[in-house]
Amino acid sequence: MSAETNLLDFARGPALEAALIILVFGIFWRLVGVLALPRTRDLSEPRVRHAWLGGVKTIFTRMWPRREFRPRILHWEAVSYIFHIGLAVVILGLVPHILLIRDITGLSWPGLPDGVITFAAGAALISLLALLAHRVTHPVLRQISNFDDYFSWLLVFTPLLTGLMAYYHLGGRYEDLLGLHMLSAELLLAWLPFSKLAHTVFFLFSRGVTGAVYSRRGARI
């Protein structure tokens, strides 16, 4: 009957199904495709007994900048952390999100009060804006940025914004905004495996492999 209701129905129905299928298919495609690529064996003598431990260590050591880089980038690292933690709190703490995850995976955990979620979402939004401003004003960062960076930013920003707008009934009826929120999040899920957003999954592998390789060669990681 109503276009708005149909939009929400579409978002909760076929769009969600399609987005999840693309997400799972894309992640396995990318992951297997990269892991199965031909690599030349390292013939040098291993400097350590268990190089893979270096890989595991690198996953954690790369979470904070090295001392020599800190004066230049520590504040942006902090902003990035605010964004990532805020986003994680919103995704994993809001009860409607948990119910969706439970519906798909069967996993469930207690939710957080809406005040906490709103604060986290606001912090994530503001930090995202700051990071975008940094990207477009920093001469080097701007040079190495491409469509993927900006489009991925937009796809992360939009669900956060529409989610807050839906909660506070800003700019439209709740069901319209909820439908837009879900559709934008589904677009994000479908785009994730094929973009830089794939680091959500790949960062473990890229850091681990890099750490293991350099650890084997005796580099300090």
Binding site: G13, E17, L20, F28, W29, V32, L100
Partner: peptide, 24 residues
């Protein structure tokens, strides 16, 4: 917030994962 469709989630997403492995 849950999905409206009554599709077999495990089977469908498992097939998607398998398809991804094969293509990869």
């Amino acid at each position: 917030s849950a999905a409206t469709g009554h599709w077999p989630r495990g089977e469908v997403l498992g097939a998607a994962a398998l398809g991804g492995v094969v293509v990869g």
